[in-house]
Computed example of a mutant assay.
Amino acid sequence: MEHVIFNIFMKAISPFYKKINRQTVKEDCISTYTIEKRKLKSSLKGAADTLSKCFIDWGIENKVSSITVNASYNDVYIRRLREDFALRKRLSIGGKFFYVRCCAHILNFLVQDDHCQLGGVIDVVREGIKYLNNSEYRLLEFPKIKKQLQLPSRKLLLDCPTRWNNTYLMLASGLEFKNIFPRYADIDPGFHYVPTDFEWMKVEEVCKFLGIFHEITDMIFGSEYPTANIFLVELYRIKELLNEKALDLFYHIRVMAGSMSAKFDKYWGESNVLLSLGAILDPRYKMFLINHAFPVIYGEDAAPRFVAEIRDILYELYNEYVDCHIVFHSEQQQRQVVKMKQNEGSSSSSKK
């Protein structure tokens, strides 16, 4: 925008054009961002009122026990909703599991950006695949080498850089065909995308690590009915894997595991109550899974306190159910008594 030719061009097409510098553009962008952020916060406050109205219109205002969200910017209207429900005394066990983080979102957040420990090898593999895909001739030559090496007929996959699972699949496919990269470079001088043996070794270790996360993510996203009882087992598997990889021989794996473990500890605390209760109510697990998983998730010293907390919440939920059951049946009996008296009155009137 500060180039002479650009400014001459803009002046020619718009007589009212005024030259601006990069600092002015930067300040305008920040100002616009601040204004839109303020508008978003205001709209989220309105979203809470809209959701409350919807619950009433649908007749479910007394049946909402928890809400699952997938991002922290929803905290504003979730807090408003919790306050509204609390004022009406319609939250189960005081709203202790009203706000639940989306488990799939937590998994994505754990892994996203942590594969940067691979350094430039991701860019090398990505650019190599782009180079091959940009020419019909290259796409024909690559399978010839693949056939010579008697490798599977699967294709190289190009990732979407903002989605870690796509990056994992790209690296896994590249790893499968790693012997083709140097052979293709021999016949194409323009192909400069050949990772070293050490870089491929790092890719292999990371793929082994991320393969577990990919499997669990597939299970959650791929299931049409992901019920609450399945999540605690998988989260336990993740924490156990992170604890194991924190002691890995490879430095980049230890760093990845440490960063992911810190995120896990931060977000698990906001979802543990409902997921724990879901597992307990599964007759295969009951409290056995809690007693087994919590020492791994929280550590041996802190686990008894959290186990006791979950047990107390379970009893509180049961007692609340009993109280509701008693109230409902007493009201039902009162209605039946009133109805019987009305029937007796009408029958005696008819006899007269």
Rank of each mutant, 00 (worst) to 15 (best):
M1H: 07
M1L: 04
I20Q: 08
T32G: 09
T32M: 15
I35N: 05
K37G: 11
L44S: 05
L44Q: 10
L44D: 03
S52W: 13
C54Y: 15
F55A: 05
I56V: 15
I60D: 08
L87N: 13
F98A: 13
I122G: 02
D123Y: 06
G128L: 00
K130A: 00
Y131N: 02
K144L: 04
K147H: 10
D159T: 03
N165L: 01
N166M: 11
T167A: 10
A172C: 15
A172W: 15
G174W: 02
E176P: 12
K178E: 06
R183E: 10
Y193Q: 10
V194K: 04
D197W: 06
M201D: 05
E215P: 06
Y225A: 12
T227I: 02
F231P: 04
L235V: 00
Y236R: 04
K239M: 06
E240I: 00
L247K: 03
H252F: 15
G258K: 08
D265M: 10
G269I: 08
S271Y: 06
N272K: 14
V273Y: 14
L274M: 14
S276A: 05
G278I: 04
I280W: 00
N291S: 01
A308M: 02
E309N: 13
Y318F: 09
Y318T: 06
N343S: 04
E344D: 09
K352P: 00
